[in-house]
Simulated assay, not measured.
Amino acid sequence: MKVSVICPVYNGEKYLKNLFSEVREQENIEFIEIIAPISKSSDNSLEEAKKYADIAYEVNNFNHGRTRHEAALKANGDYLVFITQDIVPVDKLWLYNLIKDLSDKTVAAFSKQIAYKEHGEIEKLIREFNYPDMRRICSKENAEINGRKNIFYSDAASVIIKEEFFRLGGYNFIVPTNEDVVLANNIIKNGKSFIYEPNSKIYHSHKLSFKENYKRYEDIGKFEKLYSKEIDFSNTSGEGKKLVIFVIKNLLKKGKILELGYFGIDILVRLLGYRKERK
Rank of each mutant, 00 (worst) to 15 (best):
I220G: 00
V3H: 05
G273S: 11
G12H: 03
S42Q: 06
S154A: 08
G65Y: 03
I35P: 07
F62G: 05
L16Y: 08
K241R: 13
L183I: 14
L125S: 09
R66S: 01
S237Y: 11
L80Q: 09
N146S: 12
I202Y: 04
Y10I: 04
N130F: 06
S111L: 06
D104S: 13
M134Y: 13
Y274P: 00
L251Q: 03
M1A: 11
L125W: 12
L16T: 02
I34T: 10
I29H: 06
L98Q: 05
K105L: 14
E164T: 05
A75I: 04
K254D: 13
M134S: 13
E259Q: 09
N97G: 08
K149C: 02
L183K: 09
I267P: 00
K2C: 01
K124M: 02
N250M: 10
I267C: 08
A72N: 09
E70W: 01
A108Y: 02
G169P: 10
D86P: 04
N250V: 02
N150Y: 05
L125G: 08
E30V: 01
C138H: 12
Y96I: 01
I151H: 11
K229W: 00
G273H: 03
E47S: 11
L95N: 11
P132S: 10
Q85Y: 11
D91F: 04
V23A: 02
K242E: 15
V88G: 00
I231E: 07
R66D: 01
N146V: 10
G255Y: 08
D104A: 11
H119A: 05
K211V: 01
K162F: 11
F246K: 03
P198N: 04
N61C: 03
C7M: 11
K189F: 03
G255S: 10
E48A: 14
K14W: 01
Y196G: 10
L19C: 15
I114E: 12
R66W: 06
D54I: 01
G120F: 03
I151K: 08
N190I: 03
P89C: 11
K92A: 14
I248E: 11
E259C: 02
T67P: 00
E259H: 06
R148Y: 14
N60F: 03
F62V: 02
V90Q: 12
D232L: 12
V247E: 07
E141I: 05
F194G: 13
L252D: 03
S205A: 07
E218G: 00
T236H: 13
E13F: 00
S41N: 09
L226Q: 15
I126A: 13
Q113A: 14
Y227I: 01
R275E: 12
L272W: 09
A156W: 14
E30I: 02
N44L: 13
A53R: 08
R136V: 09
S234G: 09
V269Y: 00
S193Y: 05
F223S: 06
K253D: 15
H206W: 14
N146A: 09
G240C: 07
G169F: 11
L258F: 10
K40Q: 12
G65I: 04
H64K: 09
I32G: 05
N97C: 10
L125P: 08
L125V: 05
L183A: 13
E30R: 10
N178T: 04
